[in-house]
Write a protein that binds this DNA or RNA. Structure first.
Lengths: 235, 235
DNA sequence: CGGGTACTTGAATAATATCAACAGCTGTGG
DNA sequence: CCACAGCTGTTGATATTATTCAAGTACCCG
């Protein structure tokens, strides 16, 4: 459902996660131009789709609040998760060239998204000195973070990696790095890290038994972050 | 070893792989500006390093000829390959923000690289209308291609995926999609796809027995590309 | 021709997936 | 407010896959 951003009191100049998003380090004029082309925000309920695989891609989406999952399903209906998106993250970057979403995206909780028309974004990119750099920085960071997944890792490493990654990203967004709510169910975690969900459950219990973490419903408490780091880097 | 690009008869306007590289679809002035900041080319012998993990990153490198491997080694000395770079590919993108290479890079065969100073590239980005778009396109393509690795895939799928990927990329560079030389040893392939090298060897032999491919030294011949596609998408 | 690197092949072992049964929680409608 | 359905997570037994270890062969390069 589309809203005027102003209705929801959203604007890049006052947004709490603008430092993680497109608006970071833009000049006043650039900020204004950006605010100008992002006229709309969209509200999605839990389990509502933002776009589907192969949809025509005219928009990028900036997460303002909530959490989304980008995923695809193989021929047998098995799902794999490409990424989770938290406030300040930009969704749809992969479609920048082809203008077709290579994944489906769905809200994991009630979510507000800022709707960015790609063509209009491109038109202000040429007139801006900082925006192209900012976009390149965001893209470069995504490349660095997404491609550093090591295919050789075993299940414990992957779970440890995932927890550390969530801890880092959530702490950038105001949570404690030691204690935070996991915005997604374990099934989605397993489909992200490429491990059977039973294995994820088992490993989380092992970590609890070893007093590395504790779990309370959706809340994760990391009690020994050094140990987690060791696990994630060891063989 | 650094050379003036002209010495090696390299310039973006005459380069055979410019359509895969930065120069693609640039205007005449932009091409000139680009050629102007890329004054040098570097020649590397087989096994010579281009940069090492954590080196200060002042340059991107465009592969003009040859093939490079970007890799890291874990605490136990186990290597994993982040990517292979073919002519027209841009190396070092991951360092764009941090200005530190997050991997080491080495030539797999005699290789010519165009040396692109990042700061100078940024300075002409602001003055150019097409270059920022071109850079974003390259970055976006890299995100799309690199992150579509599914962690859930089994060894056969990964080998099939790898062969199809090499077939596609080499065919964009003038080779036949059905028959081409693999520029890297199987050990590097195994470290790229995260599978033991013995397993890669076994699977290549299985594919040969099933008449899907044939191998002659470093030359791969794909005899049944449809079957390969089936394997890469099935469970 | 010799030495090393790349590759092959088999057997034992380890890791993880799969199958299965069940427990706990949540939201919904009677 | 309770009962039930459905979803999420747990736990054990078994099957499958891939790794590891080991020994050997082929090939390329000097």
């Amino acid at each position: 459902m589309l809203h005027n951003r102003h209705d929801l009191s959203i604007s890049c100049s006052t947004c709490k996660v603008s430092n993680l998003c497109l608006a970071h380090q833009l000049g006043e004029d650039e900020l204004k131009a950006l605010d100008n082309i992002i006229v709309n925000a969209a509200i999605f309920e839990k389990n509502e789709h933002i776009y589907y695989l192969n949809d025509k891609a005219d928009y990028l989406f900036a997460v303002h609040s909530g959490c989304c999952k980008e995923y695809a399903t193989d021929v047998e209906g098995k799902e794999y998760v490409n990424n989770f998106y938290l406030p300040g993250d930009l969704m749809g970057i992969e479609a920048f060239t082809s203008r077709v979403y290579p994944f489906s995206a769905v809200a994991l909780e009630p979510t507000q998204l800022c709707v960015i028309p790609i063509n209009q974004l491109l038109s202000i990119v040429s007139d801006s000195s900082n925006l192209p750099i900012r976009l390149l920085t965001i893209f470069s960071n995504k490349i660095k973070n997404d491609t550093s997944i090591r295919l050789t890792t075993n299940a414990k490493q992957r779970v440890a990696d995932f927890l550390l990654n969530m801890s880092l990203r959530l702490s950038e967004r105001g949570h404690s790095p030691e204690e935070f709510p996991l915005p997604m169910p374990q099934l989605d975690v397993s489909n992200k890290i490429g491990v059977a969900f039973e294995t994820v459950s088992r490993i989380l219990h092992i970590f609890q038994k070893q007093d590395i973490i504790s779990i309370n419903g959706k809340r994760i408490c990391i009690k020994d972050i050094e140990k987690l780091r060791e696990i994630s880097t060891s063989t």
